[in-house]
Nucleic acid binder design. Structure first.
Length: 814
RNA sequence: GCCGGGAUGGCGGAACUGGUUUACGCGCGGGUUUCAAAAACCCGUGGGCGAAAGCCCAUGAGGGUUCGAGUCCCUCUCCCGGCACCA
């Protein structure tokens, strides 16, 4: 027997497992069911974080458990290697983004290896490798050809000091996160993916996400934001222009007293001219232009300027004044709204601010709202009034009735609007996949021919910020011949959002060396969809939505046979420290590697997995002692080590009670692992280990139970598990290729149980009974109980509830 | 404001389809070992009353259903997460 010493056994097993090729996914093997265990691939930031350690510990347990249950497992890893931090490092420290990124990958890779993750390293790739982004570009071209990638003028967050576009996340309270300068709006022509074409399918197919956390499903639904209502056409009295509005409340059409356009609405300039208000309207537009995008959406101002023209309400022919106001957004609906102050709070506030009339057209049942005394809009259900033919009609039926009527009259139609907007993918940045488009004066936007891909990212660029993509300052990159006519043309100098890279990486794992396509459809058909996806909830919306979108597009292209990539998903919680999220600036960053070096990877894994439900946040400060104190999980593994060695060397037979507990434990742990209840699984293993200890201390044997513990530890503490399995228990091959232990349901059932005796629902006695005790036996025993009888004195037993063999409740009266 | 999820010992957390509340671990108290242990091992540990046997009270608060509620229903409080001028 030896001492438990993770620092020596762990590196030894890492080497052994690699030499044995244990975790290679087998593309050829059709005899075992496949299992695709996917962990969200990390951004290579340098050090491995505690959050990575937790996520990968969980994902690894899932994969190893699947192996042991006889699956052919694909458990890959790669790197989401493009992105801003690399470029910032280049600007700050003069390191080339490529160098910085590859060094980080190497560091994180060696940490993950040291932790013994069961990745199939032969499939590793990174998204900044031309062999990968070649296919990212290829997919862009396919989307472009299908009309799903297009360019349009759109407002962006712009930092005037750094002369760059900022992502929304880089704008903190309207200021640039780097230099603190107030961010303004700037209109730029940018690339978009037309994800809105898929809004309804993305919403409908949520049904296929059989095992996603509720909150993530809800977030996806809300993000898509389907809203039903009606499109109604108004006419501008002075010009004859037709303007459509979207409303969820067509039953309030008779209450319209004004009409509002978003400043960006295409008709605004013309209407202002017609109304003689161009100067005022332009002033408002300019003011808005100077406001950061993020601030504008948060402002709740009810300012607005009259356009000097009138809109004709199609339901009653009334002319109402038109305005331009910032509270109406061009991005939602049609960019114009009808103003119904009595029944919409924003419209109410706007009307009050501008002295516009309020007209009540929906009354709450049995009440009468008076516009004179109303202090807020009434936006609930009610009875229609002052609405011509619809007086007396009640909502919600009234909405359908009015919509039908609008259709009949040719004045409108049922309409659906989504909150989801098209995906802006242009980044005026260097460290990303170049957008494979060539701009030709004659032929416009021309896709780079497939054979010319990848459009390589040049190494020698000037990373300093300066108003445009660094690629734009690289003449060798920009100047190119038009693929169509051969005349001089210019490459697009923007790069793609890194979410594009991560929207299809899980396909690439299926055939990472494929050179003629992003993936081999046959390989994808073999491995996908993913059987279990594990990752952080911070990707609950964007990454998952985009990946779902890409999968549907690939499905429509005939490249994959399914429409949802991840039917089952699991989110681990965050690892925090001292109640706050870890960060370098707070100085509370704790990485797993010092802990791994000192106490072992197994101890880190168990500490994280035992801390609580996998999806809950973990406060490292609460669950782990300082580095120089022995952590409980290292101590426990030491006890397991000792117990299993002793049991292995003990000849004596194992007591039946222990065998029964062993079967119960196998049953329980199996179920717990299926449901990611790692903390509960570990506690059951502790109970079994405690029982083994007692048996050994009592001079009895425990070999079978020890063997089962070693196996069940396989997914959770893989190093010690294999050490014990091979060295102590004498097996020739790895515990990780052994078959998951099975249990005998007969033996898993307890033979003696505690019968609880209650009187009027209060526990008065506990009796040991045979598990097979029937109702009559239990009743008899209970009624005979001295402790129970003391409470029956002077009372009449009115009822006896018997639930054999666990409980008897004697109910009395009087 | 809207949507989603929570609240169980000193702490992290268990409790299957309503049936022994507090598994497992930490911490704490006591002990063994030791020159001394922050190390290891053993015992104890929800609160109150009590010498003890034992009794009473406890799953955020209040009601309800039930023989029986942490679990189901209603009302409320607080906490966490998401969205937020979405027409």
């Amino acid at each position: 027997m030896r001492r438990y010493d993770p620092a020596t056994i762990e590196p030894r097993w890492v080497a052994a497992w690699e030499a044995e090729g244990l975790y290679r996914a087998d593309d050829e093997d059709g005899s075992r069911p496949k299992f695709y265990a996917l962990d969200m691939f990390p951004y290579p930031s340098g050090d491995l974080h505690m959050g990575h350690a937790e996520a990968f510990s969980g994902g690894d347990a899932v994969a190893r458990f699947a192996w042991m249950r006889g699956h052919n497992v694909l458990h890959p890893i790669g790197w989401d290697a493009f992105g801003l931090p690399a470029e910032n490092a280049a600007i700050k420290r003069g390191v080339h983004p490529k160098e910085w990124t590859y060094a980080n990958i190497e560091q994180q890779r060696s940490s993950l290896r040291r932790m013994g993750m069961s990745f199939d390293w032969s499939r590793q790739f990174n998204t900044c490798d031309p062999e990968y982004y070649r296919w990212t570009q290829w997919l862009f071209v396919k989307l472009f050809q299908r009309g799903l990638a297009y360019r349009k003028l759109a407002p962006a967050n712009w930092c005037p000091k750094d002369q760059t576009v900022l992502a929304n996340e880089q704008v903190i309270n309207g200021h640039c996160e780097r230099c603190g300068t107030a961010v303004i709006r700037k209109d730029l022509t940018q690339w978009f993916f037309k994800i809105t074409d898929y809004a309804q399918r993305l919403l409908d197919d949520v049904e296929e996400l059989v095992d996603w956390p509720d909150r993530v499903i809800t977030m996806q639904r809300n993000w898509i934001g389907r809203s039903e209502g009606a499109g109604v056409e108004f006419e501008i009295a002075e010009t004859g222009d037709k303007v459509e509005v979207f409303t969820t409340r067509p039953d309030t059409l008779w209450g319209v007293t004004f009409f509002v356009f978003a400043v960006e609405h295409p008709l605004v300039t013309k209407l202002a001219e017609a109304g003689g208000t161009s100067a005022e309207v332009k002033a408002m537009a300019d003011a808005l232009q100077a406001t950061p995008l993020t601030n504008r959406e948060q402002a709740e101002s009810r300012e607005g300027v009259p356009l000097g023209v009138h809109a004709v309400n199609p339901v009653n022919g009334e002319k109402v004044p038109c305005f331009v106001a910032p509270y109406v957004l061009m991005e939602y609906g049609t960019g114009a709204v009808m103003g119904v102050p009595a029944h919409d709070q924003r419209d109410f506030e706007f009307a009050k601010a501008h002295g516009l009339p309020v007209r009540v057209v929906v009354q709450p049942e049995g009440e009468a709202r008076d516009p004179e005394t109303m202090t807020e809009a009434y936006d609930h259900e009610g009875v229609m009034v002052n609405s011509g033919p619809f007086d007396g009609v009640r909502s919600p039926e009234s909405i359908a009735a009015v919509t039908r009527w609008l259709e009949e009259q040719g004045k409108g139609r049922a309409a659906v609007t989504y909150r989801l907007r098209d995906w802006l993918i242009s980044r005026q940045r260097y460290w990303g996949a170049p957008i494979p488009i060539i701009h030709c004066d004659e032929h416009g936007e021309v896709a780079v021919p497939e054979g010319d891909l990848p459009v390589l990212l040049p190494d020698d660029v000037d990373f300093r910020l300066g108003g445009e993509s660094p690629l734009a300052r690289h003449p060798g990159f920009v100047n190119v011949a038009c693929p169509t006519c051969g005349k001089p043309a210019r490459r697009d100098t923007d790069t793609m959002d890194t979410f594009v890279d991560s929207s299809w990486y899980f396909f690439r794992y299926c055939s990472p060396y494929e050179t003629s396509a992003p993936f081999d459809p046959a390989d994808v058909a073999r491995w996908m969809p993913v059987d279990q996806y594990t990752g952080g909830v911070e990707h609950a919306i964007l990454h998952l939505l985009y990946s779902r979108f890409f999968t549907k597009v690939l499905h429509d292209m005939g490249m994959v046979g399914f429409t949802e990539p991840f039917p089952r998903m699991m989110n681990q919680g965050q690892v925090i420290f001292g109640g706050a999220s870890m960060s370098k600036s707070k100085g509370n960053l704790v990485g797993p590697m010092p802990f791994v070096e000192r106490w072992g990877s197994d101890a880190v894994r168990l500490t994280l997995l035992f801390a609580g439900p996998f999806e809950d946040d973990i406060d490292w400060q609460l669950i782990a002692p300082p580095l120089d104190r022995r952590p409980p999980m290292n101590a426990w593994l030491g006890r397991v080590h000792t117990a299993v060695w002793e049991a292995a060397e003990r000849e004596a037979a194992q007591p039946e009670e222990l065998t029964r507990l062993m079967h119960r434990t196998i049953e329980g742990v199996t179920e717990d692992l299926e449901r990611f209840r790692f903390n509960v699984a570990i506690s059951k293993l502790q109970v079994l280990t405690n029982a083994i200890r007692s048996a050994l201390d009592g001079g009895e044997g425990a070999r079978d139970a020890a063997s089962a513990v070693a196996q069940m530890l396989g997914p959770l503490a893989p190093f010690l598990a294999d050490e014990l399995w091979r060295e102590a228990l004498g097996n020739q091959t790895s515990v990780h290729v052994s078959s998951w232990p099975s249990f005998d349901p007969e033996l898993a059932r307890q033979e003696r149980v505690t019968l609880v005796v209650q009187v009027d629902g209060k526990v008065r006695d506990r009796l040991g009974v045979d598990a097979s005790a029937d109702e009559a036996t239990c009743r008899e025993l209970a009624l005979a109980s001295e402790n129970a009888r003391r409470f029956l004195d002077g009372r009449r037993v009115s009822q006896v509830i018997v639930r054999p063999p666990r409980l008897v409740n004697i109910v009395t009266s009087g």
